[in-house]
Structures are given as C-alpha cells and as structure tokens.
C-alpha cells in the first residue's frame, strides 16, 4: 500500500518558500522599465549593462572584495593559530577562552557595530579601510575558529609525528602535512568568513564613511532612496555567483564543506 507522502509535499513547499525570492529577483532584474514590477512588462538587459559596462556598483563591489579578502586572511591566520591551541592543548581556562573566541557569534551584530563605531571615534582611529577590515575580522574569526578547531580535533596527529620522524621540523611538518590535509576544513571556515564579511550590512552600515562603502551598504541605501531594477540586477549577480559557487563546491567535495555531521 502506497500512502500519500505528506513529508515530500511539505518539503517541496518549504523549498519553494526558500528559493522563490532568488527566482523572483533574477526575473525582475531583466525588467525594461525603471520601476520594478513582477512580472516585468518587458524584458531587457539594460540594468546589467549599467553594472557591467558603465561600472555602476563596481567601486562598492571592489571595496567589499577588499574588505572580505583582507579580513578573511586575518581571521584565518589567527583563527588557525588559536585552533591549534584549543584542539591540542589542555590548559586551565581553555573552555573560557574558547567561549570568548566564539562570543561574537552569540552577540547580535548590531552590538559589534555600535561598540566599534564608538571605539574608533573615541580612539581617533577613525573610519577607514583598515578599521572596517578589522571589524570584519572580529566578526568572522569565530567561524574559522569553530570549523578549524573541529577539523583539527579529527586530524590524526600521528601524521604530523610521522613527518617529524622523517626529519621535517615542526613548521615543515605542519605546513606540508597538517595544513594540506586539513585544507577542506580550513577552506570551508574561510569561505564562510568571507561570505559573512561580503554579505554583512549591519556592522558595515555603522562603520561606513564616504571613502569606505561596501556593496551591501550601497544596496541598502539604494533600496531606501531609489527602487530601480539595477538593485535586482546586482543582487541577482551576487546571488547567482554565491549559490552557483556553493553548488560547484558541493559538486567537487560534497556536502561536508557546508554541514558538519558531528
């Protein structure tokens, strides 16, 4: 007897809910009028032309990429160092330190934004590219610490010992054996750090200044002041790249890069 499978129907409905916004935005981005409507009255590529040929949003995109890349690099390096300590050493206060390192995840981001805005103004550091990068590093380091610590806990330490037994000093053993083997874990932590930085609007909104406007901040203000389909076009571009990238990584190395199965 085959029963009607309510589970499948429910799952389909939820996936429609999850994915519809992206389809809609992609569709709307081809609109030919200046006022966004779905379904659009006519189709055109004019908004993509504005972005790709006339360079609309490109300066902000570059800023976002710079901030994302630099903050990911910083959070990855210090996150990996911290993970070695957390995964391999048992010392008094380890749990406390570990929860401090993960704390930025447990705190509403608005707090990081408002606290750092005040810190940067009071200390006269001011709002500039380095201060934006460091703010993003604080926000994203926990992702690296979390994924790399759990990857490192699963790493078979005798591999590193084998390398040292064969004459590699610790740095050589770590860089030539440990790091390459842990690369998938490090990669997924760093990727999530980058994406978090790239997509962040709240911290960036607090810390943005005329010289440092990230893409989400620009999109945010554009939504406020003009509701053109160009927003849909840049949104569709970045979303397609992000979701496409996720699916590409899934095709190459499976779901493990995104979901940990304890």
């Amino acid at each position: 007897m085959r029963r009607f499978n309510w589970g499948v129907l429910f799952a389909i409905l939820m996936y429609v809910f999850i994915l519809t916004p992206f389809v809609v935005i992609l569709y709307a981005s081809f609109s030919d009028s200046a006022l966004i409507t779905v379904p659009p009255k006519g189709l055109s590529l004019r908004w993509y032309r504005q972005i790709l040929l006339e360079g609309r949003y490109i300066p902000e995109l570059i800023t976002s990429l710079e901030v994302g890349a630099a903050s990911t690099l910083i959070s990855s390096v210090i996150g990996i160092l911290a993970s070695i300590a957390l995964a391999r050493y048992n010392f008094p206060g380890r749990d406390v330190i570990s929860s401090i390192l993960l704390a930025p995840l447990m705190v509403p981001v608005v707090l990081i934004g408002v606290a750092l805005l005040q810190f940067y103004s009071v200390t006269k550091i001011g709002l500039n590219l380095p201060s934006m990068i460091m703010a993003h590093a604080v926000m994203t380091a926990p992702y690296v610490v979390r994924t790399v610590t759990s990857t490192m806990k699963g790493f078979n330490e005798s591999l590193e010992e084998a390398a040292m037994n064969l004459g590699a000093n610790w740095i050589q053993a770590f860089t030539q054996v440990t790091l390459p083997i842990m690369m998938p874990g490090i990669f997924s932590g760093a990727m999530f750090a980058f994406i978090t930085s790239f997509g962040d609007s709240v911290v960036s909104l607090f810390l943005s200044s005329p010289s440092v406007v990230t893409l989400p901040v620009k999109v945010f203000t554009d939504i406020m002041w003009n509701f053109e389909p160009a927003i849909a076009a840049i949104s569709a571009l970045t979303s397609v790249l992000a979701i496409g990238g996720v699916l590409a990584i899934y095709a190459i190395q499976g779901a493990s890069a995104f979901v940990s199965k304890q």
């Binding site: 005798s158 591999l159 010992e161 084998a162």
Partner: peptide, 9 residues
C-alpha cells in the same frame, strides 16, 4: 606507526 600514518595527500 600503528595506523601507518601515510600522508593521504
């Protein structure tokens, strides 16, 4: 080593 510890990469 007991589990050989061959470098998988």
């Amino acid at each position: 080593f007991q589990n050989y510890a061959l470098f998988p990469h």
